[in-house]
Design a protein around this nucleic acid. Sequence first.
DNA 1: CTTTATGCAAATGCTTTGCACTTTT
DNA 2: AAAAGTGCAAAGCATTTGCATAAAG
Lengths: 151, 151
Amino acid sequence: MESKQGRREKKNERASKLRRLGLRATPQRLAILAFLEGNRNHPSAEEIYQALKPRFPSLSLATVYSTLEILERAGEIQILTIDPERRRFDPDPTPHAHFYCRLCGRVFDLPPGEPVLEELPEEIEGFRVEKILLCVYGVCPGCRGRHKEGT
Amino acid sequence: MESKQGRREKKNERASKLRRLGLRATPQRLAILAFLEGNRNHPSAEEIYQALKPRFPSLSLATVYSTLEILERAGEIQILTIDPERRRFDPDPTPHAHFYCRLCGRVFDLPPGEPVLEELPEEIEGFRVEKILLCVYGVCPGCRGRHKEGT
DNA sequence: CTTTATGCAAATGCTTTGCACTTTT
DNA sequence: AAAAGTGCAAAGCATTTGCATAAAG
């Protein structure tokens, strides 16, 4: 289990990170950062909100949205448009491919280099490139096992 | 200008295409197909609806959505999730990269092979692949000219 | 004549907004 | 204090749904 001290240290790291970005280190933001850290589930805003509500009863969905947008602009997270129903959030801001399972709706990170996502060029034919998303759709291994249509 | 006969021929082609797919060739569907054909603007459902309304006053937005979904399932068009605000539709179903300009909101086709979108593998690490979208975000050449921030 | 598609209006659900209030710094 | 962030409720919109009517094959 994690030590009380370890937790305090991480909290301080998150706070400094926020201040470094010119943002105020509010409990809400620290909680969102902590929840996202190492989270590979690509949660939606609602999921983040629901997960944090028990510990932060005053938290509002609007704050979640606003924080996530700010974090994206600061380059700390990615906002994914892969899910047609809702925005999904990825704490890993480095470019990598994502997979959306049309059966369970889960979003997965794909191993780097699998569909090759070469480093983003500064520019493509006059278009200034700022971000690239590679979205793969289909059926995930788990769902392929449960429903046995095709391979 | 296009001959009356040429138009009739294309209409027949569209009708046969629909029937081949097991769909009924209704005026609404023919109109949507005709509007999409060769359209490089990646219109939204609303845009398609507005464009067709003058000639088909009875057309409804629900029909536009339903037709587009059917056409995607039939593999005739692509539904893009590149625009965070709304669904965009591409009459070209072959895999190619798209560019979304955050200033004007337009969606462009990128030349094939620019960000290389290799043919989609049947499967990646156990994930069954059915579709790949490569979405590039940034500023388009037109907007780079108008606002002269950065390069 | 059967089946499929359409149109309407209402409903749904995600995301944003305005604003008064609270917290950081 | 000043500036920035939060929470709430309402508003905004894109998309879907249910169902009665209409058109296609």
